[in-house]
Design a protein around this nucleic acid. Structure first.
Lengths: 414, 414
DNA sequence: CTCTATTTTTTCGAGCCTCGAAAAAATACT
DNA sequence: AGTATTTTTTCGAGGCTCGAAAAAATAGAG
């Protein structure tokens, strides 16, 4: 039930607003912040003075080079890197990576590690995650007290509250409450996020002009994932992370999907599906566990070379993605799309069939306007998104506490 | 860009909160309002005293019958019916209806009218709408000065800002800015809403226990429409009213849809599609313009009688709806569904195939949990939703002005 | 080198708003 | 009639934002 605004929430919300403004612009002056927030100069002055006193913001003395304006020069405000730090943990197929990021967003420590996620035992998987985190805490070069939050990301389905992994293609185990486990272990607030959602958040920070209020990030990898931002907010399901674009139905009773069902978009556009079609194994063939990036790249090379089954496999992938996007656009209207992952590097092979399919759907009206961008490398995006998600949590929950607890603000964590 | 909270917004928001609390509960006492809003008794007392002074609320002297509690009895607060009024205009196939509703939600005047929407000229259609509204204004029994807002609803696509009808199956004309037209004509704020969105709003008011934060209203009529409430807010597309569930793709290159494309859910589950399949006309047969409700009812009766093409037609409809819902649920997770419209009365014929289909999708996990409710009569729902939408606009924009203009509050108009 | 114009930032009093505590009001029970 | 109980109002305190004015910091003019 929506709740009234108390008097003391006012300052907290405006504090959060100022912090967010500083994080968004690199070094805004007080005047700029006043302009973007709509608050008065007096208020901004008071709040930023508080924040500087608390060590959250710092004044970066001389503004940009060559400020040849008359008048008192602006003083840039920036985030104090020492104010806090966050940790990101990204768990993907056979790969575990961790990073520590300071409050200003710079990576200050990281570690990466290979492990066989498909066969590892449940406890061992959890153990690997806690161990890699613990090694960060034991690093003598790091001021571990500053670490204020841990954000994990995993390929698969997480719950809405970002507490647990519910299901993931990279492991046979289900329902692992990673957030609780890490919180109990290290006493630091943690969340378990969906990888594609983190991609979307990262895109928004990287290119806010293109990825502003409504856009779609689609992961073209072994499976197909999606992160969706609508009306400026990350879209999630009612119970889970949602947005399982890869498991929308492309053809009822169609090709066998890795999820055990039939006809999902992924069963045509996932790496294993492209591989299966390229090898002409038939739609009933059991999905292979993994296709290496190198194999996918050489498949794409062959497809570009000659019009054989490889090219046809990419065509089918494009068709499935196109009809899927058409159905999605029927619901949300068209929006800019970012294609991420290995197969995004083969988007030239996918695009023609995709556009042809989407043009045959109601959601694909004016399909020529729909713009796609490809980014082959998903891991840096996921880590970046995790970092920003964790940092904005610190902004809101640690440095402007009480904002999230009450009212409906604080949802725009994207 | 999100904006700071000014000091004077505080009172406005809390005013809106109090009004909303009174509209939600029938006759809450000040103490109850304090409890639901989390504001202090002093604040509620001050605000409600203002609102009573302004004639927006009234004290309904004796509380409920038999308040055998000790202590000072609660004084119920209720909306003053005379504070304002709104008008609803519902435009559906061959049918135009208007109603005037007082501030407390009671219908005080109405008119209904048949007209041939499929063939009427553009200007004549607009003329009929303005004329029927004007007749309300000329009614000597009505205090026309009280009418503070007009809400129109139409089957079809409207724009996000609720200004114009972009496309509708009930007329060949497109892009009619009804909201602007009525505003210019009568000088009263107007909006043009999507019919299924209004159904969803009405369901939420009718049965808030079942239809609270996440649910789906599907209109099974000549076409298939959807109204979606997610996280307590009405879901709309990025540019249009969105939620075109009927035009998600069920079978690529499948049956001919009324929209001219192929394989849409509607091309299997719309009345014309059920009719076409029952008559075994083939999937390429041009959709008929209209099937009467009586014809649909007798079709359902035949289908219940014997296992012929009629039953098969409903089975195909159920299958299309099931796979469509499965894809939808893959995106948003399962939620309660209300089936509305003539064919909702035949939901017994549709349900088995629907459940079978949905069980074969990723979104249909635990499909036996998904609950459906049928409501054959859509028109009262649409009108009710329009009324509530218009009334909550009055609550917010007229009686607590400035709330919508700033910040992110006021979105939960559903 | 001094003075003025210009722009940014801080200071200060005014005006609101919400809150908690206490008072007032209105009833049931004894 | 008196007491207990519950609701509602009153009132002073504390906080917040705002506008205006002052202070600070610079570029350009003479």
């Amino acid at each position: 039930m929506s709740v009234g605004i108390r008097h003391d929430d006012l300052r907290r919300r405006n504090r959060a607003m100022v912090i967010a403004a500083v994080r968004r612009a690199r070094q805004p002056s007080r005047t700029e912040i006043a302009a973007t927030t709509g608050l008065s100069h007096s208020t901004i002055s008071a709040i930023s003075s508080d924040l500087i006193g608390e060590g959250i913001l710092t004044e970066s003395k001389p503004s940009e080079a060559g400020s040849l304006k008359r008048g008192r020069p602006q003083v840039g405000l920036s985030l104090n890197p020492e104010a806090a730090a966050v940790m990101t943990v990204v768990l993907s197929l056979n790969f575990l990576s961790v990073a520590v990021i300071d409050y200003a967003g710079q990576v200050i420590s990281e570690e990466q590690r290979r492990l066989d996620t498909l066969t590892i035992a449940r406890d061992a998987l959890i153990g690997e995650c806690t161990a890699i985190v613990r090694r960060r805490f034991e690093d003598p070069d790091l001021d571990v007290h500053r670490i204020a939050r841990i954000a994990l990301a995993i390929q698969g389905i997480t719950d809405t509250r970002a507490r647990a992994m519910l299901w993931s293609p990279i492991t046979p185990h289900t329902d692992i409450a990673f957030a609780d486990i890490l919180e109990d272990e290290f006493g630091i607030p943690a969340t378990m996020e969906n990888d594609c959602n983190m991609m979307a958040i990262a895109l928004r920070w990287r290119d806010p002009d293109r990825y502003r209020n409504d856009f779609i990030a689609i992961l073209l990898s072994h499976g197909i994932g999606m992160g969706l931002v609508l009306k400026g907010e990350l879209f999630t399901g009612t119970h889970s992370s949602g947005g399982e674009f890869g498991h929308m139905i492309h053809r009822p009773n169609g090709a066998l999907c890795r999820c055990g069902r039939r006809g999902c978009v992924e069963a045509y556009a996932g790496n294993y599906a492209i591989w299966r079609n390229a090898r002409q194994l038939g739609e009933d063939a059991e999905p292979v566990a993994d296709v290496s990036d190198a194999d996918m790249r050489s498949l794409a090379a062959v497809a570009r070379e000659s019009d054989g089954p490889e090219r046809e496999a990419y065509r089918k992938a494009g068709e499935a993605l196109g009809y899927g996007l058409g159905s999605l656009f029927a619901l949300i209207d068209p929006a800019p799309v970012a294609m991420v992952g290995v197969s995004a590097a083969a988007f030239d092979l996918i695009e023609p069939a995709l556009r042809k399919a989407i043009a045959q759907t109601a959601g694909g009206q004016h399909s020529e306007w729909i713009s796609f961008e490809a980014e082959p490398n998903e891991l840096p995006l996921i880590r970046e998104g995790c970092a920003m998600r964790a940092l904005t949590f610190v902004d809101q929950e640690i440095f402007a506490p009480g904002v999230l607890a009450r009212g409906s603000a604080g949802k725009s964590v994207a």
